[in-house]
Structure formats: C-alpha cells, structure tokens
C-alpha cells in the first residue's frame, strides 16, 4: 500500500482504468481480437456439431466438455494478443516508464483480457445452446462462466506477458497456461454438467467455490509477481 502511495503518477484505480480504457478503445478501432476469435469459436462449435452424435444422451455427456474446450481455445487466442499488441511500437516500455505500480498495469491488462474473453463467450454461448439444444437462461451457468473466465485472465495475463518475450511464443502460452488452469477447466466443466443436468446449486456449489478460490489466489499472486515479469 505504501508502494502505491509513493507513486507521484496516477492513483492505482485511475491507472487501471486508463490502461483498460486504452485497450477497449484500441479494440473498438481494430477489432483484431474479438472478431477473428468469434469467427474461430463459431467454427469450433460447428465442428463439434459435426463430430458429435446428436443423440440427446450423448449431448448431455459431452456438451459441457465441448463448451469448455471451445472457451479455453478462444481464450488462448485472446491472451496471445493481450501483450503482443503492446510490443508493436514499444508500448510495453511506454507503460513501464509510467510512474504507476506494476500491479496496476497488470490489473488493467488483466481486466481487458477478461472483458474480451467474456464478450466472445457471450456470443458463443447462445450459438452453442442453439446448436446443441441446451438451456441458455441459467444464472448458475453465467456465474460459472464469469468466475472461470476471470480465473483464466488472472494467470493468462501473467503468462502472456512472459510468452510475448520468448521464442515460440504462440505455443509456449498454452503450454504454460493449461496445466495451471487445469483445476478451473475441470471445475467449470463439472459445474456446467450439473447445471445442464438440472441439479440444484448445492450440488455444484463446491466447484464454484473452488473456481472463486483460484481467482482470488492467483489475482493476488500474479499482481504481486508481475513486477518480476516485466522489469529487466
């Protein structure tokens, strides 16, 4: 906290919001994250509809897994862009020169990645529900998606900042991301399965709790260690 007050630059929240606003404005201009990923994700859903048996029992068994495979692949593409766009004109250095806490830079970038993934998922979910004839108006499902996506963004933004400086960065990001995010993927798929089966919240609440715990832990750990990722 003292560290934050010591900065003569923007306050913590105004720096977070400035970074977030900048990313949203850029995306509204270029649409280079959301548009291609939406098209890609719709393709994934269509391909699932080809390869999976449309028999309702089969759909119930595999749909939750398919949904989360599609979400994680889409998220991966978005995360790859998160810091790649900063590299183009040395923007990352522009950010690093700013007199704000590194945790604020992390929070701004992470929230941007979170919102982009959420936007893509908001378009994918109705398409998925239509193709597989599954319920869409499920607050439990929305909660699961929101929390799991936040969890993806917490570790994903940190790994994206690393991967962008490495060789083979497009492949390294998923290699780093999937093992760490595995519990969120398992929990989200299981919660989704329970929701599609019509279970009560009490039956899948522990999965939601696990995802929420992951979110809190890694938001804090990633924000605290971000300085070591970005500073030479």
């Amino acid at each position: 906290m003292d560290e934050r007050r010591a900065h003569p630059g923007a306050s913590w929240w105004s720096a977070v919001l400035a970074v977030l606003w900048k990313d949203l404005l850029l995306e509204s201009r270029t649409r280079e994250i959301v548009t291609p990923i939406v098209v890609f994700s719709l393709l994934v859903i269509v391909i699932f509809s080809f390869v999976l048996d449309p028999n309702p029992r089969m759909v119930e068994a595999v749909a939750p897994g398919a949904l989360w495979v599609a979400f994680t692949f889409a998220g991966m593409l978005g995360l790859n862009r998160t810091f790649a766009l900063e590299k183009e004109r040395g923007g990352m250095e522009g950010l690093l020169l700013s007199p704000v806490g590194r945790d604020a830079l992390y929070a701004g970038k992470m929230l941007g990645a979170f919102l982009f993934m959420l936007l893509v998922e908001a378009i994918m979910l109705p398409a998925f529900s239509v193709v597989f004839n599954l319920p869409l108006l499920e607050p439990g499902l929305w909660l699961t998606i929101g929390l799991a996506t936040f969890g993806f963004a917490t570790v994903g933004a940190a790994f994206s900042a690393m991967a962008v400086n490495t060789r083979a960065r497009e492949i390294l990001l998923p290699v780093l991301f999937f093992p760490v995010a595995a519990p969120v993927i398992i929990a989200a798929a299981e919660a989704t399965r329970a929701i599609y089966a019509g279970d009560a919240f009490a039956d899948y609440g522990n999965w939601i709790g696990l995802i929420a715990a992951f979110d809190v832990i890694f938001a804090v750990v990633a924000a605290a260690t971000f300085e070591f990722i970005v500073s030479e």
């Binding site: 900065h7 900048k22 004109r89 040395g90 007199p99």
Partner: peptide, 19 residues
C-alpha cells in the same frame, strides 16, 4: 518507482499506439 516521474524518454520506438 520513485524516479519514473523524473524522466522523459524518447527511444527508437515511439511508445505510441498506432490505432
């Protein structure tokens, strides 16, 4: 962290966002 507001930097890259 305490020297960042004291310096202004121009390097080869512009640190600007193209779009």
């Amino acid at each position: 962290a305490d020297v960042r507001h004291l310096v202004g930097v121009v390097m080869h890259q512009t640190f600007l966002y193209d779009d």
